[in-house]
């Protein structure tokens, strides 16, 4: 049974590059391009891991994270924040809300990001 990753990211190029890479590593990738759809998919698909961008349409990544961690059905799913916000206040806020780890996209190559993801799934 393939492990499922919910990838919440509104940038098409990042969805394509990282999504395809993860698929080639044997994961099932479910894509969400906004916060509202992301929450629906998190409940219906029950993924093994969630990759979450913080700057997304409709509902912000912080709100999505808060809702995921307050819902019995999704609270135990590890959430990796994958964003370009790198202010210490943003990092502290996401970790306080229950993010498993916090990665700044611009600081990692595709391969490095995948390696990090693998260590949590």
């Amino acid at each position: 049974m393939k492990k499922k990753i919910l990838f919440i990211e509104d940038e098409r190029a990042l969805q394509k590059t990282l999504g395809d890479y993860l698929k080639s590593e044997g994961y099932k990738v479910i894509s969400a391009f906004d916060g509202e759809n992301a929450l629906k998919l998190a409940l219906s698909e029950e993924p093994d891991l969630i990759l979450l961008d913080l700057v997304i349409p409709k509902i912000t990544g912080f709100e999505v994270l808060e809702k995921l961690k307050n819902d019995q059905k999704t609270k135990s799913i590890p959430v990796i924040v994958l964003t370009n916000l790198e202010q210490p206040s943003d990092i502290d806020r996401a970790l306080a809300l229950g993010a498993t780890t916090y990665l700044v996209k611009a600081n990692y190559s595709l391969e490095e990001v995948v390696e990090k993801i693998k260590s949590f799934i």
């Binding site: 370009n84 611009a106 391969e111």
Partner: peptide, 20 residues
């Protein structure tokens, strides 16, 4: 700078994907 970061990450990851 913030606005440039996202397209730059997209470019970088696209090159990585091509390379792989």
């Amino acid at each position: 700078s913030h606005q440039l970061r996202t397209p730059l990450a997209s470019l970088r990851w696209s090159f990585d994907a091509l390379d792989k």
